[in-house]
């Protein structure tokens, strides 16, 4: 179990604990400065990207201590307010039975990094009572929202998984889960910052993929599925290779394997990876 489970799991995985979806309805929010148009930093746009411009500077300067300090301070704050974790499709489908209401909405990251028009960009899911008041903050929900039944949401999630997007849960005010995302590298700012700058705003999932080398036929169907640079073909043995140390446990490779040659193991069952979040 990761530290979030220990703190908020109540004996199970934290994102399967219904308490973490049930924040007080219609929390009264103080009239913010935003009412009249507050200044925003356009360079900080995208999921968890507030410090990235500075992180890039630290990276270029070669000052490791600076880089570590930026990450430590930013993550200390993020873990108390806003961060994400990879989940499997099965877990995601379970969550769709716990959380309500469910809305399809635009993906901020892909707009920020690729300028995706909102009408082509409904790959995020907002959840919970906050969705009933989305009109207060339309910028977050550009292009509006589309309410779904749990059954529609499941179909949609399965379609996203099939197309190759990673399922994640996202916290808005720890431990309240307010978003279910369908992410990819490099379009997702959180995935990108984790892989390119080792910024742990996005945590790895509770599972890890392992290739059964006896069963793998080298058919290559799984190649291209991994959004975390963890999967390739060992050409000399003609078998798929998963870098288990790097794997985020999303399960996308498994869905594509016709031979059942990849299994998802519980991270906890692997002493060498149990603390690798």
């Amino acid at each position: 179990m990761c530290w979030v489970c220990e703190k908020y799991g109540n004996g199970e995985k934290w994102y399967l604990n219904p308490e973490n979806y049930a924040r007080r309805l219609y929390k009264v929010r103080k009239e913010g400065r935003e009412a009249s148009g507050a200044d925003a930093d356009p360079q900080a746009a995208g999921m968890g990207a507030g410090v990235v411009a500075e992180l890039v500077k630290a990276r270029i300067s070669g000052d490791l201590k600076w880089e570590e300090e930026i990450k430590r301070d930013a993550l200390e704050h993020a873990y108390q307010t806003h961060f994400g974790q990879v989940v499997t499709l099965d877990e995601y489908l379970q969550i769709l039975d716990i959380a309500y209401p469910l809305v399809k909405m635009t993906c901020g990251c892909r707009r920020v990094q690729r300028g995706m028009p909102d009408e082509e960009n409904f790959t995020c899911m907002g959840i919970g009572p906050g969705m009933y008041k989305w009109e207060r903050w339309p910028e977050t929900y550009r292009g509006g929202v589309e309410f779904l039944t749990p059954e529609e949401a499941k179909q949609w999630a399965m379609m996203n998984h099939k197309e190759g997007r990673v399922q994640t849960v996202d916290v808005f005010g720890t431990p309240y889960i307010g978003g279910l995302c369908q992410c990819e590298y490099p379009g997702c700012v959180a995935v990108r910052n984790r892989l390119d700058y080792d910024f742990k705003f996005l945590l790895k999932g509770h599972t890890v993929a392992k290739v059964d080398r006896e069963k793998c036929t080298g058919c290559k169907s799984c190649l291209g599925r991994c959004q975390f640079k963890s999967l390739n073909l060992e050409v000399y043995t003609n078998k798929a290779y998963v870098d288990m140390d790097q794997c985020f446990g999303c399960g996308l490779c498994i869905t594509a394997c016709p031979s059942g040659a990849i299994e998802l193991l519980d991270r906890e069952s692997l002493p060498g990876l149990a603390e690798n979040w």
Binding site: A38, A40, Q43, R111, Q113, R136, W137, E139
Partner: peptide, 14 residues
Amino acid sequence: VVFVCGPTKIWKGR
């Protein structure tokens, strides 16, 4: 993917 495009203002209600 070097560029980002972000808002300079956030408004309530629009």
